[in-house]
């Protein structure tokens, strides 16, 4: 592809608009005035050394940080123009729209089938026919159908790790989210399994907006359209992935991607 380099100011619709976002765990400030926008049907990567706040930022987007006692937030996180931290937000509904894949594959100790339909069941879908269809569609979309279609009643914990992770993706696709958050989805996987997940991400990008946190700079370079580099809770630089990796404008970013730091 030889199109013009992507830039956050270029054309296209933004799903998330994050401005002046501060987050505190008790007295510790984990995010400092973060600014970022997330483009529709693009992959946005967050990179940076451990403890830089990239996972924390990701977990702000579906309010998973609410689960941690003593978390305080200032600033705005807009999803399609609506402030998700406004008192009127239905958090359950938000999490249906903004799904999440975790660092370690976390299928429930249920059958494959019951894992995939979990999100639908809690949303009140009970028609067997409908569930069957969605299970097949979701597993196909996660490239798992051909592997597991004959043992949907087996425990999900019997699958190898990379298939477990793809099952978690399928489980998510079943509820048809709009945005998918991935928190280091490949850190527990070997290189071949990682490659499969990356290919899957590029496929999913056609329909979903994806934000991925990764430790692995090459991974960000391979799959993402936009990249944000974070350090000690600050967004040091955010821009098109090509720009960030070839001509970063900030010295700190340059040090990190060239391996002088981190």
């Amino acid at each position: 592809m030889s199109s013009a380099p992507l830039s956050p100011d270029g054309p296209g619709r933004n799903r998330f608009e994050i401005s002046k976002l501060d987050l505190f765990y008790g007295d510790f400030q984990a995010l400092k005035s973060v600014e970022m926008s997330v483009r529709d049907r693009m992959i946005t990567a967050l990179i940076g050394p451990s403890g830089c706040g990239k996972s924390t930022l990701l977990r702000c987007l579906n309010r998973m940080n609410d689960l941690i006692h003593g978390t305080r937030i200032q600033g705005k996180v807009l999803l399609d123009g609506q402030d998700i931290y406004h008192a009127s937000t239905d958090v359950t509904n938000l999490r249906k729209r903004v799904g999440m894949v975790f660092q370690r594959p976390n299928p429930f100790p249920l059958s494959l089938y019951n894992n995939v339909v979990y999100g639908l069941r809690v949303a009140g879908v009970h028609s067997r026919k409908e569930l069957d269809e969605i299970v097949e569609r979701s597993l196909r979309a996660a490239w798992l159908w051909d592997v597991v279609s004959d043992r949907l009643d087996h425990s999900a914990l019997e699958l190898p790790l990379d298939q477990q992770q793809r099952l978690c993706v399928a489980r998510l696709l079943a509820v048809q989210p709009e945005v998918i958050l991935m928190d280091e989805p490949c850190s527990a996987l070997d290189p071949i399994a990682t490659m499969k997940i990356e290919e899957l991400m590029l496929e999913l990008k056609k329909e979903y907006t994806i934000i991925i946190v990764t430790h692995n700079m090459q991974q960000a370079a391979r799959v993402s359209d936009f990249t944000g580099y974070m350090l000690l809770g600050e967004m040091i630089e955010f821009g098109g992935t090509k720009d960030i990796f070839t001509r970063p404008s900030n010295k700190l970013t340059d040090d990190y991607i060239t391996g002088k730091y981190g």
Partner: peptide
């Protein structure tokens, strides 16, 4: 019970 089960469930929109 691993916390990841609870997170996975809540992240799918379960109460």
């Amino acid at each position: 019970v691993p916390q990841s089960y609870r997170e996975g469930s809540l992240a799918l929109g379960a109460t």
